[in-house]
């Protein structure tokens, strides 16, 4: 090290090695962004939401179907009492429920209704309506990976946007609110 560092070429070695490392990361970064773009968006975006007919959490004898919800855009938020990340997301939903300007529908996923009711009682209920999918079969049609997930569905019942993972104020500001505004303008 000592003797070779005096020569100009040798002095460039660290710089070149570092440049190679950075180039590697840049390639990785670019590759990953194109790569992710292929995989992550749901195949259902801009397609009609699957038809469903699910019981209400409050009164399981009443069923809510896709047709009942047509006519205005709404957010469908997948949650469950066993879901740790949902508890994280929960304060954000409480804060935003009235700011969205459209109904926030809870989709209770693979959960015992009693557990879900207890959970909402304890933490507060941000939803305008909660439907339950105990078996998870409708969830398959939606392509739900897990909870929490949020779908933005327009007045015609077409899925406009899907977010996987907890909603945060940043996500809402960046991805949800502009789309809601768009839908409202289109509807007006």
């Amino acid at each position: 090290m000592n003797e070779s560092a005096g020569k100009p070429v040798a002095r460039l070695v660290p710089l070149i090695a570092f440049a190679a490392l950075v180039a590697f990361f840049v390639v990785g970064l670019v590759w990953n962004q194109t790569h992710d773009a292929r995989f992550v968006p749901s195949p259902l975006i801009n397609k009609p939401a699957p038809a469903f007919n699910l019981p209400r959490l409050e009164n399981p004898t009443q069923l809510v179907s896709k047709a009942n919800l047509l006519g205005q855009p709404y957010l469908l938020n997948v949650f469950a009492s066993w879901c740790f990340a949902c508890a994280e997301e929960h304060p954000t939903l409480m804060a935003y429920r009235d700011r969205f300007g459209i109904p926030l529908i809870g989709y209770d996923y693979k959960d015992a209704p009693a557990d879900a009711r207890g959970w909402l009682q304890k933490h507060g209920d941000p939803y305008h309506e909660v439907i339950t999918d105990q078996s998870g079969e409708t969830a398959l049609d939606f392509g739900i990976y897990g909870a929490p997930e949020t779908y933005l569905i327009d007045a015609q019942g077409i899925i406009r946007y899907k977010h996987i993972g907890p909603l945060t104020p940043a996500v809402i500001a960046k991805d949800i609110e502009p789309r809601i505004r768009e839908l409202k303008q289109a509807g007006a």
Binding site: N2, A5, G6, P8, R11, L12, L15
Partner: peptide, 17 residues
């Protein structure tokens, strides 16, 4: 930061003998 420093080093590394 690091690339700049290493470039500076390549240009200005003092005689080390």
């Amino acid at each position: 930061v690091i690339g700049g420093s290493l470039a500076l080093y390549a240009l200005r590394a003092p005689r080390v003998t």
